[in-house]
């Protein structure tokens, strides 16, 4: 019910819906509603952070070991890119609040460019892990060249799975099989050069559990990546509106709303970066 249709003497500002008293109240309602949505987003990621906490609490050595497969430099670059994009988004809100149309467009474009850079670097990281078989769950099949032991895993009995192009790295008949798999007779081509454990049994057990790291890694960064893409779509939508001149200091609600969403995407990454890339 925006009375945008040329009725300046309608008795209220043109962008004010009838059920609000003032533009300020209307804006505050939108902000509050956005915060409620962001709360559900935080709870959504909270479940994954909980999974992370449980896995890391139970298997800290796996996380210490597996994070060496992540490129800390790429993670740091992505962190900086996302922080800068958060700033440009906040600057876009500042620009629209001050009626600076060209700065608004420029800052939105800069935010989109940063977001694209983040996704691009993330794609490079994912591609690298895909090539090396460092994937989630049963798809965790690290390549042989990482392994000191080159014996194939043919001694695995009763392999229920039709083996993929790489011989199964860990003797895992089923996904969440019980701990019988830890009795694997050989050291096994774990595909890992763990610094810590020494006995063969620990080798196998770690290979069994490292897949959990990558499950959590892909679950959390994947969901975060989807949010980045969703944020890019939202920013592009606001950018179109800005180019059409829909926003002014009197009405700019979509800009800070998309900004809030984008900042939450940044907030999540602020935690993901040290939790995955900076394990000590």
């Amino acid at each position: 019910m925006n009375a945008q249709t040329g009725q300046p003497n309608h008795g209220h500002p043109p962008h004010l819906a009838h059920h609000f008293h003032t533009p300020g109240q209307q804006f505050q309602s939108a902000v509050f509603g956005m915060w409620l949505f962001l709360a559900t987003e935080i709870l959504l990621f909270g479940g994954l952070f909980c999974a992370y906490a449980v896995y890391r609490g139970n298997h800290p050595e796996v996380f210490v070991h597996a994070h060496h497969y992540l490129d800390r430099n790429l993670g740091a670059i992505n962190t900086i890119i996302l922080l800068i994009s958060s700033f440009t988004m906040a600057a876009a809100v500042w620009a629209v609040q001050h009626g600076r149309q060209r700065m608004l467009v420029g800052m939105l474009v800069a935010t989109l460019v940063c977001a694209g850079g983040f996704i691009g670097i993330k794609a490079v990281e994912y591609q690298h892990k895909w090539q090396h078989g460092l994937l989630w769950g049963k798809y965790y099949q690290p390549q042989q060249h990482d392994s000191p032991a080159t014996t194939p895993a043919e001694e695995v009995p009763a392999s229920a799975e039709p083996a993929a192009e790489v011989p199964a790295a860990a003797p895992a008949p089923t996904d969440d099989g019980p701990h019988e798999t830890f009795r694997a007779p050989s050291p096994g081509p774990t595909g890992l050069v763990p610094p810590g454990p020494t006995t063969p049994e620990e080798h196998v057990q770690e290979a069994q559990n490292v897949r959990m790291f990558f499950s959590v890694y892909f679950g959390m960064t994947g969901l975060h990546g989807l949010h980045v893409i969703a944020g890019m779509i939202a920013i592009a939508w606001v950018l179109v509106g800005a180019l059409q001149g829909r926003f002014s200091p009197a009405y700019f609600t979509p800009v800070p709303m998309v900004g809030l969403y984008w900042h939450v995407v940044d907030l999540i990454w602020i935690y993901l970066f040290p939790l995955f890339y900076l394990i000590h």
Binding site: T22, P23, G24, F27, V31, R72, A76, T79, I80, L83, I84, S86, F87, A90, A91, V93, W94, Q97, H98, G99, P249, A250, Y251, F252, P256, F273, P274, L278
Partner: peptide
């Protein structure tokens, strides 16, 4: 004119926040 819709955060504050965030990123690495 537009004091009643939102509160513009001063640009100095925004830039300072970015600087602090980048510094903290360096520190955490």
């Amino acid at each position: 004119a537009h004091a009643e819709i939102g509160h513009p955060v001063p640009m100095k504050v925004l830039a300072g926040t970015l600087a602090a965030l980048l510094l903290l990123t360096v520190i955490t690495v």
